[in-house]
């Protein structure tokens, strides 16, 4: 990614240039979508959330310092948006959750299949966490935020963030141990 280009596009978009904003969407849509997919666990919902996040970002440009990189800001917006969604509707896990992402499983070497299975288990384990724990994992492990930055993003005290994160890890590790090594992914219907 060209940082200078990213920055000039950001400045133009902040002034209302929608073509520039369209280019920013193309540059960052995959990253933003993947945040949503990890939190929501469903392609369609994740695409909707990503789209909504971009629209919100555009409308909130006044509050953004255009000297800063835009991707972390976009990820922050989509994270909060997704968290609000899963808090609003009780997390009903869709069938898609426990399974590997569609289209991907091409016949391949066994190691590759095992890795895919493991990834699906990790995704399912993340999705089985309560929203606040899911948020902590997402922000620390996938967005590389410090404890302080997570606290700021979630507007929670540092101590709460730390205990959430550590409990989330413990829970995840236990759930992954349960499903390890080649057991089928947990049946998501159990939790509904």
């Amino acid at each position: 990614m060209n940082i200078a280009n990213d920055r000039s596009l950001t400045k133009l978009a902040a002034q209302g240039d929608q073509n520039a904003f369209g280019e920013l969407v193309q540059l960052h849509q995959s990253a933003v979508f993947n945040v949503a997919y990890r939190i929501l666990g469903n392609q369609q919902d994740a695409e909707d959330a990503a789209q909504e996040a971009f629209v919100r970002a555009y409308n909130a440009f006044k509050s953004f310092d255009t000297h800063r990189p835009i991707r972390p800001w976009l990820k922050k917006i989509v994270t909060n948006l997704c968290l609000n969604r899963i808090k609003a509707h009780r997390p009903t896990l869709s069938l898609e959750n426990g399974l590997p992402p569609p289209k991907e499983p091409k016949p391949g070497p066994e190691a590759q299949t095992a890795k895919r299975e493991r990834d699906a288990q990790v995704r399912a384990a993340i999705l089985s966490l309560p929203p606040r724990y899911r948020a902590a994992i997402e922000l620390r492990h996938f967005q590389d935020l410090s404890y302080e930055e997570i606290a700021e993003t979630l507007e929670k005290p540092l101590s709460t963030v730390k205990s959430d994160l550590f409990r989330a890890r413990k829970m995840l590790a236990e759930r992954l141990k349960e499903t390890a090594p080649t057991q089928p992914p947990p049946n998501s219907k159990d939790r509904i």
């Binding site: 929608q18 904003f21 369209g22 969407v25 193309q26 849509q29 995959s30 990253a31 979508f33 993947n34 997919y37 990890r38 392609q43 695409e47 990503a50 789209q51 971009f54 629209v55 555009y58 992402p101 991907e104 890795k115 493991r118 990834d119 990790v122 995704r123 994992i137 492990h141 996938f142 992954l176």
Partner: peptide, 22 residues
């Protein structure tokens, strides 16, 4: 395990949909 979790490909370009909603 978390670090190795790959990003999944986006199936649709979101640009048009976003621009239509601005």
């Amino acid at each position: 395990s978390l670090a190795e979790l790959p990003e999944i490909p986006l199936k649709h370009d979101l640009k048009a949909g976003v621009l239509a909603r601005l």
